[in-house]
């Protein structure tokens, strides 16, 4: 079972105070730690588990700057075999289709049985690239997988729907699956583990090598004319209870007793 794995590096904003750049087009990323996109981390683990069970080779691909090699090394440390980085130069300002095109032009020449991607990313959250890529490659797909079973050249994918409901769908091989968080428990990656794969070569691809018309990617190829970032509008919002922990808890206890009928 040869697997191609698409991953992405994102800034970790779970506890960060995000500031918007003056031009309103992006956030200030200098002080933010760059990490593997959470959904992609589950996808890496799932790929490694499939390989451990059925054998084969995992090729991990990212589209990003040099720093994004970190997520490739991390995937190699978890069990991927080969890594490709598509340099982001020329892709800046791409919409999801521009990114999918970059991946497509590398993947179309590679042999594979399955492609795994995260269902969405923690930064822009488009949830598009995986399915666009499947469409370009003309292969069947399923999104939001929380379980994957391989049986007689068929893949049974359990998709997460709403309200505690799921569905099973069947895909032939080759196909593409996007991974929902919680599908597995990703293994721990130690510093030593990453050091061990430090010398593995990462193949690099550049826009010029890919035969993509340059006006199909970047801002030129994007459907978006302008994007302006802003802080969330101030809603009614919560009444913020201030004071010492003692005072705050006194008030909270009052509210809970009164509203909860304790």
């Amino acid at each position: 079972m040869n697997i191609i794995l698409c991953v992405k590096q994102v800034p970790d904003v779970t506890e960060a105070d995000i500031r918007i750049k003056k031009d309103g087009k992006d956030i200030e990323k200098e002080d933010l730690e760059m990490v593997i996109n959470e959904w992609d981390n589950y996808a890496v683990e799932e790929a490694v588990r499939i390989k451990e069970k059925y054998g084969g080779k995992i090729t991990v691909i990212t589209l990003g700057d040099e720093e994004s090699e970190d997520v490739l090394r991390r995937a190699l440390a978890m069990g991927a075999d080969e890594a490709i980085r598509i340099d982001e130069e020329g892709f800046e300002g791409s919409d999801p289709r521009g990114i999918a095109l970059g991946l497509y032009h590398v993947i179309k020449d590679l042999p594979f049985d399955l492609i795994l991607t995260g269902a969405q990313s923690a930064d822009m959250g488009w949830a598009q690239v995986g399915v666009l890529l499947a469409g370009m490659l003309n292969i069947p797909y399923a999104t939001l997988a929380v379980q994957i079973e391989i049986k007689d050249k068929k893949v049974i994918v359990k998709r997460e729907l709403e309200s505690n409901t799921f569905e099973n769908v069947e895909l032939p091989i080759p196909s593409l699956i996007t991974i929902q968080s919680g599908i597995n428990e990703p293994r721990y990656v130690s510093v030593l583990g990453i050091r061990r794969v430090r010398k593995l070569k990462i193949e690099e691809k550049f826009l010029d090598d890919l035969e993509i018309p340059p006006d199909k990617v970047g801002e030129k190829g994007s459907i978006i004319e302008s994007m302006k970032l802003m802080p969330p509008p101030e809603g009614k919002g919560a009444e913020i209870i201030e004071g010492s922990i003692e005072e705050v808890c006194e008030r909270l206890a009052q509210i809970i007793k009164e509203k909860g009928g304790l």
Binding site: I27, G125, K228, P232
Partner: peptide
């Protein structure tokens, strides 16, 4: 209008 970065930022988009 979209929310990005887990709802911490809003993004206003105009299309071509």
């Amino acid at each position: 209008l979209r929310q990005i970065y887990g709802g911490k930022i809003f993004s206003e988009i105009r299309l071509k």
